[in-house]
Design a protein around this nucleic acid. Structure first.
Lengths: 211, 211
DNA sequence: CAAATTTTTGACCGATTGGACAAACGTTAG
DNA sequence: CTAACGTTTGTCCAATCGGTCAAAAATTTG
């Protein structure tokens, strides 16, 4: 074995073309959902004919599955980095910041994931109840230990994680609405910095006035 | 004119059947998205034949449009109720509570809306930049006045509203994920009460420890 | 170069889709 | 009863869908 990976052996051109297809599919799937997307659309976005695309991925589902599989890893990376050792408050602040940056830099990935969950997660349900739950439970335990140590206020760690997901991903998934509501002046590039400032304050101090 | 409404005149049976279709369409659209849903599915869910359904709604799009139009009204009702006069902190708390109740009681409506926004809001963009923006701007002004009066902490009112939307609707739109992560024991009916408690604390006091 | 292999494509297929239409059926008013 | 009107359905159609296949084109290998 020259290159020993679990993945089936592939030529250089296969690697490239598969990557091209996945990139195109991410674009199409994330804006139209799985059923709303056609192989023709993906093929055209990838600059090749439909039969050619089907030469690299036998079925439409295979493209989507490959995409989801990769996605989940990178998507959960920020949560994995949540460190037991660091200062709790800054750890959480960094996690929120990283999640918001991902919403800004990878909105298509966020929407792809949202589309899947919205429609009942028919294709990744096992992953949610398996790997995802395990990871969240683990990190919830870490957060709980912080609470016991008096480092952060006592609340439900699971719902805390949900709220971080919800508020940050909102800027990717509901981007159209956010921009429409903020209008042309405030809806520009600065909206993510505004969001970062707001979220930091919300999660640290809440809304109660200081005095 | 006996009944003078803007809507075209309709017989009693037409009213009923249209309502039946809209109810069925809400179910189907909210779980499959617009393009992922078929007229046959909706017709079957409504207990009638496809041509019969098309007698009441000429096109698939008309059903969806009618649904969206109604939805937006009821969906924004809680925000409309946000009252200038009441005590700011309790007004906000009540708003969050009402929104969370809507996520619990009308998850299909939430998902229908989320589906539409996720895919770029092609059919309701004008409403977002029009009525919705107007309403949010108006309420943001109210919130701002509360801040000036020192009743709540100073932050960005628009992003505050976004965060309330995000955290509450999360429990409808990402319900599958929430239940999967919480597991069989904690993912039951009690999850909304847990969420309510958590959100109240988050928005009031944030995470900083009391000590 | 020539054979073997990989990549690309045009043509095609069955299934499903949104929608049209005329005929049948039911209901109501005179 | 019957004519008019509202409702329902079976049948059909063109377009689009995911996917196949054989053959052509390009590339790699000896």
């Amino acid at each position: 074995m020259t290159t020993s990976t679990d993945a089936p052996r592939r030529t250089r051109i296969q690697q490239e073309k598969r990557e091209l297809i996945l990139e195109a599919a991410l674009e199409v799937f994330s804006t139209n959902g799985f059923r709303g997307s056609t192989i023709d659309q993906i093929a055209e976005a990838a600059g090749m004919s439909k039969p050619n695309l089907l030469y690299y991925f036998r079925r439409k589902e295979d493209i989507h599955a490959t995409l989801m599989q990769r996605l989940l890893d990178t998507w959960l990376a920020p949560l994995r980095e949540l460190d037991d050792i660091g200062d709790p408050m800054t750890e959480l602040r960094n996690y929120i910041r990283r999640k918001l940056e991902m919403a800004r830099d990878f909105p298509r990935e966020s929407r792809l994931f949202a589309n899947e969950i919205l429609q009942g997660a028919p294709r990744i349900m096992p992953l949610l109840a398996g790997d995802l739950k395990t990871l969240v439970d683990e990190k919830a335990a870490v957060i709980k230990s912080w609470m016991r140590a008096g480092k952060i206020a006592r609340t439900d760690p699971w719902h805390l994680i949900f709220s971080i997901w919800a508020t940050t991903q909102h800027y990717a998934d509901f981007d159209v609405q956010v921009r429409a509501v903020l209008g042309p002046d405030r809806g520009g590039d600065g909206r993510f910095e505004d969001a970062a400032r707001f979220l930091e304050q919300l999660f640290l101090d809440g809304l109660k006035p200081k005095n």
